[in-house]
Amino acid sequence: MSSRTVLFTGGAGFIGLHVVPLLLERGYRVRIFDNMFRGDRDRVAELAATGRVELIDQDVRYGGAVYRVMRGCDHVIHFAAVSINKSQADPYESIDINMVGNHNVFAAAAEHRIRRLVYASSASVYGEPRKLPMHEDDELNPLTPYCIAKRAGEDLLRFYQRQRGLSWIALRFFNVYGPGQKPTAYYTSVINHFVARLRNGQPPVIDGRGEQSMDFIHVRDIARGVVAALESERGNMPINLGTGVDTSVAQLAKILIDAVGVDVTPEFNPRDVLVSRRAADIRRAREVLGWQPTVSIEDGMADLVRRTPAGSRRTPAPDRLPRTPAPSSTS
């Protein structure tokens, strides 16, 4: 395994920088392909100092660059994408990067006969679920340019599987959180906002009764899932990565109150709220990848609070979970 090389698009982002050390532990060499718009140059420099990581500062929209740098690689991890909130503000750029970028990476992988391509898809492809837990075979109803591109990416992978024999796994990430995440991350900014209020001695303010929920999955578990997908004997399918637990915003507030260690009671803002719930069916991840989550939300949130310096993560995010469809974070 020591001679195998992974091309990792978007590898300088939040999740990627948790995956790369695991790849190094398993003997891989890593080429990070990232335009560094949101990448962490200092952390990449630390990894490059090992002699087994290199950075290609480039954009997935340039198909020639993607093709050239993939030469000599055995595996590909494709994370590069425009985030969900930016995709709604600028659909043109979102389609350009997320759709064209997907195709450039997948076509090159098929041409180079890559052994396995792991794609960062998203639970956002489901839209508003009709039932819980959300299973990979459920109806898909993506509602934003980001979500639509993620679903189209899965379809493109199937095309290259049929046409060129490309081996792939699309990981549908639920609500990823953990150390190193930017405070503006769309679906988990509520965590940072609650923590900022609690550290100021203020109670979290919750719209409605706090019944809206998400499936929060720690980045350390996500990273393990990515490596498992890269090495799995079975492939050519989407796989959920979540905990299977839907944590309501009211429960999240209580967990964070305990983690911060303050004596406050959440305040509820009476109003009509669209109650949206999320929970992943993770049976396929267990069966195909031999993977299951190991970090409970209580332990994960407590660790996140410990690692976040007081006053450094204040954000004007809303006091409620977002109402737009399903979760994701890829960088």
Rank of each mutant, 00 (worst) to 15 (best):
T5W: 07
G13R: 07
G13C: 04
I15S: 09
G16R: 06
L17S: 01
L22E: 14
L23E: 13
R26L: 06
R26G: 09
G27C: 01
R29H: 07
R29G: 02
V30H: 12
V30L: 03
R31Y: 00
R31P: 02
F33T: 02
D34Q: 05
D34G: 05
N35F: 03
R41S: 15
D42M: 04
R43D: 01
R43V: 09
A45H: 00
A45R: 08
V53P: 13
D57V: 07
Q58N: 15
Q58E: 15
V60F: 11
R61T: 11
G63I: 02
G63R: 02
G64C: 03
Y67W: 10
M70G: 04
R71W: 06
C73H: 06
C73I: 01
D74Y: 00
H75W: 05
V76E: 12
H78T: 07
F79D: 01
S83T: 11
S83E: 04
I84E: 11
N85E: 10
S87M: 08
D90N: 15
Y92W: 08
E93V: 12
D96F: 00
I97W: 02
N98Q: 12
N98F: 10
M99G: 00
V100H: 07
N104T: 09
A109Y: 10
A110P: 11
E111S: 08
L117A: 12
Y119G: 06
S121N: 04
S121D: 10
A123R: 01
G127L: 10
R130S: 13
K131E: 09
L132D: 04
E139D: 15
P142V: 10
A149C: 14
A149K: 02
E154C: 01
R158W: 13
R162P: 05
Q163F: 07
L166H: 03
S167H: 15
S167W: 11
W168Q: 09
I169Y: 06
A170C: 08
F173M: 08
Q181I: 04
K182T: 15
Y187R: 12
S189E: 09
V190S: 05
I191A: 03
F194Q: 00
L198Y: 12
Q202A: 06
P204C: 11
I206P: 01
G208M: 11
E211V: 11
V219Q: 08
V226A: 09
V227D: 14
A229K: 04
L230P: 06
E233Y: 09
N236S: 15
M237R: 11
G242E: 02
G244T: 12
G244F: 05
D246T: 08
D246S: 08
T247L: 15
L252E: 09
K254I: 14
I257S: 07
D258F: 02
A259F: 12
A259P: 05
V262K: 10
D263C: 02
P266E: 06
F268K: 13
L274W: 05
V275L: 05
R277Q: 10
R278S: 03
R278N: 07
A279M: 06
I282A: 04
L289Q: 01
W291V: 00
Q292Y: 03
E298S: 10
E298Y: 01
D299A: 10
M301S: 06
A302R: 15
P309A: 14
A310E: 10
G311F: 12
T315E: 09
L321Y: 15
R323F: 13
S328N: 14
S329T: 14
